[in-house]
Design a protein around this nucleic acid. Structure first.
Length: 472
RNA sequence: GUCCCCAUCGUCUAGCCUGGUUAGGACAGCAGAUUUUCGAUCUGCUAGCAGGGGUUCAAAUCCCCUUGGGGACGCCA
C-alpha cells in the first residue's frame, strides 16, 4: 500500500500548538506506517491573517519534532506549488467552471444583509443559516446591485439535504444538511478563494487519499464532499480526531502560549518525548506500554485504535514522560542534547567543556532542560544560598569548621569517606548534617547526590566554599 | 436555538465490536523502603463504569431516554 497520500495543511495564523502538532504527527505516523507520502501544504488563503513569520515558525517546529515532509515548501514535489497563495488562479478556474455548470452562482447579497439575517434568526431561535436568497435574484435586481458597486461572492449550491459518510475514527456519521447548511461562499468578493474551495481543489489535485484532521472540521466535511463531487472528484477518506483541551477543559487556542510547540522547546522538552506524550492523548497501544522511542511509536501507532472522546492536556504527565526519556539517554547523548538546548535558548553561561563534563550528573534529577541553568550555578563560586537560614545555625557552623579541619588534615577523600570523618565529630546527623553540607557545597536544597558533585571540584574550591559558608 | 460528535479513577487510558474481569495500567496524591540529605528509584494504598429505563440467566459492554461536555452553523481555517 505505497499509494497512501496524506497532508498536514495548517494556516500560518499563529504558532503551532499541541493540537496542531498532534494532527501532524498522526498524519505522519499513519502515512509512514504504510510507506505512504506525507505532504505539507500551507493554507494561506486569507491574506489578511497569514504571516510569513508564522509560516517560518511552523516548518521549524515540525522539523524540530522530527516530522519531515516528502512534498511541500522547500522540498517541492510533483503537485506543487504547496502554498495556497500561489494557487489562486487554479481555484478561480474551478469556481468559474462550477458557475458555468450551474453548480455555483454569483451572489450579490452584502455582508450587512447577512448580519441582519443572522441576528433575526437568532432572535427567533432559528438556526442562523444562509437562506439562499441570492440564488434567484432577478436580472434587474442584480443590475441594480452592480450599479451600487456591490461585488459578488461565489456561492456553492447545496442541493442534497442528507449525507452519510464513513469516518476513519468515528465510523458512520450522517448529516441533516437541510437544517444546518445554506449555500456557502467559495470565493470572496475580492476574488480570493475560501478555505473550503482551496482544500477541496488541493486535496483532489494532490491526490490525497486520507484526510486526517481535527474534529472541528467534522461539520465541514459534508460541504467538502459535495463540492468535490460537484467538481467531478472522488472524495478522500476522512478521519476526524477529537480535540485536545487545556488542563481545565478549556479549548486550546493559538493564543494560549503554554501549549505552543515553541513553549515546549523553550522549556526543554525532548521532541521524542513530546511525540510520545501527544500520541498517548487519544491513543493507546493496547498493552501497558507508556514510553516509546520514535521507532517504536511508528511501529505501534494505529489509527484504528484512536479513541473518539476528547482529552485534556496534563503538563505533569508530559514532564514525567520527558523525565523517562531523559533517563533512557546515555550520558553522552544527554550532554549533547542538553548542551544543544542551552545554546539554542542562549542559556549557556559557563565554560562549555566544564558544563559538558558536569551535565550527566543531573540526568536523573531533572524533568526538563530549563531546570539546568539553575543547577549549573554550582559551577560558579559566588552562588546564592537557597535557604541562608540553614547554614547559619551553630550546628551548621560546627559542621563547616569540622569539614575544614578534615580538609586541612590530609588529602582529599571521596565524599563518603569525607562525610564519615565529619560525622563522629559533630552533633548533627542525617538530614541535619547533609543539608548544611549540600547548601555549603551547592547553594541548593535539591540536586544530584553529593558524592557525584564532590569529585568535580578541586580541594581549593571545596575549601573556599566551606570558608564562605562559615562566614555567612 | 438547530445539526453533528462524545461520556470508565482528579487526569491520560485498557476493557466495549464478539455480554460472564477481584474493571487492568500510567500520571498526580498518600504511605513505606532505599539514598546517613533533597531529588531520582522501588513497593504498597486511595480512587472510576454520569443517571434512568429496557434486552438478557447475566450489562462498563447491546438498545432507548435524560443529563453533562465539545464542535459546527463566517466573504476564519
Amino acid at each position: 500500500m505505497g499509494s497512501i497520500r496524506v497532508r498536514f495543511a495548517p494556516s500560518p495564523t499563529g504558532y503551532l500548538h499541541l493540537g496542531n502538532i498532534r494532527t501532524a504527527l498522526f498524519n505522519y505516523l499513519f502515512a509512514k506506517r504504510e510507506g505512504g507520502t506525507f505532504i505539507l501544504r500551507i493554507e494561506d488563503t486569507d491574506p489578511e491573517r497569514s504571516e510569513a513569520e508564522y509560516r517560518q515558525a511552523l516548518t521549524e517546529d515540525l522539523l524540530w519534532m522530527g516530522i519531515r515532509w516528502d512534498e511541500g515548501p522547500e522540498v517541492g514535489g510533483a503537485s506543487g506549488p504547496y502554498l495556497a497563495s500561489e494557487r489562486f488562479s487554479i481555484y478561480r478556474q474551478y469556481a468559474q467552471t462550477l458557475i458555468q455548470e450551474g453548480k455555483a452562482y454569483h451572489c450579490y447579497v452584502t455582508e450587512e444583509e447577512i448580519e441582519e439575517m443572522k441576528r433575526l434568526a437568532r432572535a427567533e431561535k432559528r438556526p442562523p443559516r444562509f437562506d439562499n436568497r441570492g440564488r434567484d435574484f432577478s436580472k434587474a435586481e442584480i443590475e441594480k446591485r452592480k450599479a451600487q458597486g456591490i461585488r459578488p461572492t461565489v456561492r456553492f449550491k447545496i442541493e442534497n439535504p442528507k449525507l452519510k459518510m464513513n469516518d476513519l475514527v468515528r465510523g458512520e456519521v450522517s448529516f441533516n444538511l437541510d437544517e444546518m447548511l445554506g449555500d456557502f461562499v467559495i470565493q470572496r468578493a475580492d476574488g480570493t478563494p475560501t478555505f473550503h474551495l482551496a482544500v477541496c481543489v488541493d486535496d483532489a489535485l494532490m491526490n490525497i487519499t486520507h484526510v486526517i484532521r481535527g474534529e472541528d472540521h467534522l461539520s465541514n466535511t459534508p460541504k467538502h464532499i459535495l463540492l468535490l463531487e460537484a467538481m467531478g472528484f472522488k472524495p478522500p477518506q476522512y478521519g476526524h480526531l477529537s480535540l485536545v483541551h487545556g488542563p481545565g477543559g478549556e479549548p486550546l487556542s493559538k493564543r494560549l502560549e503554554s501549549v505552543s510547540v515553541r513553549e515546549f522547546r523553550r522549556k526543554g522538552i525532548l521532541p521524542q518525548a513530546l511525540a510520545n506524550y501527544i500520541a498517548l492523548l487519544g491513543w493507546a497501544p493496547g498493552d501497558n506500554r507508556e514510553i516509546f522511542s520514535w521507532q517504536e511509536l511508528q511501529k505501534a501507532f494505529d489509527l484504528k485504535q484512536v479513541n473518539k472522546s476528547r482529552s485534556n492536556y496534563d503538563s505533569q504527565k508530559l514532564d514525567w514522560v520527558n523525565g523517562q526519556h531523559l533517563r533512557i539517554l546515555s550520558d553522552e547523548d544527554f550532554s549533547r542534547h542538553a548542551l544543544a538546548y542551552l545554546k539554542e535558548q542562549k542559556l549557556l553561561r559557563q565554560d562549555e567543556t566544564l558544563v559538558h563534563k558536569i551535565l550527566p550528573v543531573f540526568k536523573d534529577n531533572i524533568e526538563h532542560f530549563d531546570q539546568l541553568p539553575e543547577r549549573l550555578e554550582v559551577l560558579s563560586d559566588d552562588f546564592q544560598y537557597e535557604s541562608p537560614a540553614m547554614i547559619q545555625t551553630p550546628e551548621a557552623k560546627e559542621i563547616f569548621r569540622t569539614a575544614l579541619d578534615v580538609l586541612n588534615a590530609g588529602m582529599l577523600l571521596p565524599f563518603d569517606d569525607f562525610a564519615a570523618q565529619i560525622k563522629p565529630k559533630v552533633k548533627a546527623k542525617g538530614k541535619n548534617l547533609f543539608m548544611p553540607l549540600r547548601l555549603a557545597l551547592t547553594g541548593k536544597e535539591h540536586g544530584p547526590e553529593l558524592k557525584r558533585i564532590f569529585p568535580l571540584f578541586s580541594r581549593d574550591q571545596i575549601k573556599k566554599r566551606f570558608e564562605r559558608a562559615l562566614a555567612s
